[in-house]
Design a protein around this nucleic acid. Structure first.
Length: 496
RNA sequence: GACCCAGUAGCUCAGUCGGUAGAGCAGCGGCCUUUUAAGCCGUUGGUCGCAGGUUCGAUUCCUGCCUGGGUCACCA
């Protein structure tokens, strides 16, 4: 019946016996409802004002000190832990012996009673009535703590991610991160709602994927009898909405990328994309900066310990062109270099290059190696090479090698990516066809030609500023977590 | 993908210079009516991640694999 090892099975068997005894004594171990009238945190908050008042509380039994005919226990609800005191003579022999004595740490109970202070000064519920709300038959990891210091902490990362429920029960402070995540996301939605953006939902299952350079997950629809891809970006659908006249749209949704995973990457991740018609890159910088500052306000501070640095979100974000940064760092005039000269230069720095790399890829390489890691404080970097930005408008008043694109870097990591969206349908078609050629040459991440998108673009699209933000990373920054796994409830892990 | 580290009882860990394992907590039995990492007495529980190799003998040494963590490479 069970693959559990004997010592664990033994514990489960004992608990099953207790469950049977509880039932035999006429107590329902899984009843239907309980009306608690108090969250335990409010008891401590009120302090002496609560002494003498009657409360009913519900939660999980997390510690148990039996002393014969009287016992102390702590129960934990979503707000915190509360000590309760239960005495045989107060609750009756039947309840004490047949129900209470068969309880285990991990059970969920409700109690009613008056608040008093113990000899040692702890506010405690003097139990008059106790009801079992759920019998736990599988043991929890050890829960021991004194004065806020935990002992035998449940800290095996793998087990914590695989069995998140145990993580939250035994390390309740972890829940704070996810409450903050929810608040951050709420503030993002609110940010756009108050600016009259429309929240939309576009397909996650797409016959053709696009809008980013990445390898997709592939799936199959039985009735349609066709391959579908899980989206790697919302971009192309959102642009169709702009063409359709929505003018301001945003979507907060999951993207799926069939690529490597590490502390900054989960195969499914939450992305925010927003598009505003008649706007350009620089408008989007302003909007993005406001967005980040608004989200930070939710946490109630503006300096964040992140990736080994203190990030100041209160100051104005830096704005620098890619060449400005490169020239500052290298002392060269990178912009003047030909492809060949650039290749030689990158080689001379002993960076890994292949002769196949185009101008854009070389610049990107140089930038990624020399500049990115140093972009600690929030910095918008603009002027990207056209070759690596097939969806962005060519830079105004330029020779056409650069596009209007920015990325926002914080703590050496990319947080946002934005374009003055390419609206010229002929240029767009050529650029996607160029990408398709790269694919044929073996670049699995190159983009594919989406004829439906191109035809929509041919109908005419207003100039538009568009931005994509990595929401998990935003949450990492604001909750000061160094691994994306710590801001995702159920991060991807290999199935055992 | 490469390299490094880790995997021993339900949890946290020790240990075996090669002779098939210990502790604390949890569990179980007993005592205990204001305890709080409750306490005291007794006690169950392990194919030492998996598979091969070397050896009289492997949990320990070697190799491969699995899982996770970290660093690097690429991507958000």
């Amino acid at each position: 019946m069970s693959q559990d090892h004997r010592s664990l099975q033994q514990i489960i068997d004992f608990r099953l016996q207790k469950l049977a005894r509880i039932r035999a004594a006429g107590y329902d171990p899984y009843p239907y409802k309980f009306d608690a009238d108090t969250r335990v945190a409010s008891i401590h908050k009120a302090g002496d004002d609560m002494v003498g008042s009657r409360v009913s509380i519900a939660g999980r039994l997390v510690s148990l000190r039996k002393m014969g005919k009287a016992s102390f226990a702590h129960i934990q609800d979503k707000s915190g832990k509360q000590q309760v005191y239960i005495k045989r003579d107060d609750v009756g022999v039947d309840l004490y012996n047949n129900l209470f004595k068969n309880l285990d740490i991990g059970d969920i109970i409700g109690v009613r009673g008056d608040i008093f202070r113990t000899k040692t000064g702890e506010l405690t519920v003097h139990v008059e009535d106790l009801i079992l709300l759920a019998k736990s038959i599988r043991p929890l990891p050890n829960l021991k703590e004194k004065d806020g210091q935990a002992f035998n902490e449940f800290d095996d990362k793998e087990l914590r991610y695989r069995q998140r429920h145990l993580d939250f029960i035994t390390n309740p402070e972890v829940k704070i991160i996810f409450r903050q995540r929810a608040a951050i996301i709420r503030s993002v939605l609110n940010f756009f709602d108050t600016r009259e953006f429309v929240e939309v939902e576009t397909p996650a299952l797409q016959p053709i994927y696009g809008g980013a350079s990445a390898r997709p997950f592939i799936t199959y629809h039985n009735t349609l009898e066709q391959k579908l891809y899980l989206r790697i970006a919302d971009e192309l659908y959102l642009k169709r909405l702009i063409i359709g006249g929505f003018e301001k749209v945003y979507e907060l949704a999951k993207n799926f990328r069939n690529e490597g995973m590490d502390r900054n990457h989960n195969p499914e991740y939450t992305s925010l994309e927003f598009y505003e018609a008649y706007r350009d890159l620089f408008d989007m910088m302003e909007l993005t900066e406001k967005l980040f500052k608004t989200a930070a306000a939710v946490i109630g501070k503006n300096k964040f310990d992140f990736a080994g640095n203190t990030i100041n979100l209160a100051a104005a974000f830096e704005r620098k062109s890619m060449f400005e940064l490169l020239d500052e760092k290298t002392g060269e005039t990178i912009e003047k270099m030909s492809v060949q000269q650039l290749l030689e230069y990158v080689k001379s720095l002993k960076l890994e290059v292949s002769p196949k790399m185009n101008y854009g890829q070389l610049l990107d390489k140089l930038f990624g190696e020399l500049i990115e890691p140093d972009l600690v404080q929030p910095t918008f970097v603009y002027d990207y090479p056209k070759a690596i930005s097939p969806l962005a408008k060519v830079k105004r008043n330029s020779d056409g090698t650069l596009v209007e694109r920015f990325e926002l870097f914080i703590g050496g990591m990319e947080f946002a990516n934005s374009f003055s969206e390419l609206t010229d349908p002929i240029d767009q078609r050529q650029r996607l066809e160029a990408q398709a050629k790269l694919r044929e040459l073996g670049d699995e991440e190159a983009q594919v030609v989406d004829e439906n998108f191109l035809q929509a673009l041919e109908v005419g699209m207003p100039q538009t500023g568009g931005v994509g933000v990595g929401v998990d990373r935003l949450v990492m920054l604001l909750t000061e977590q160094n691994s994306i796994k710590d801001v995702i409830l159920f991060p991807a892990l290999r199935q055992l």
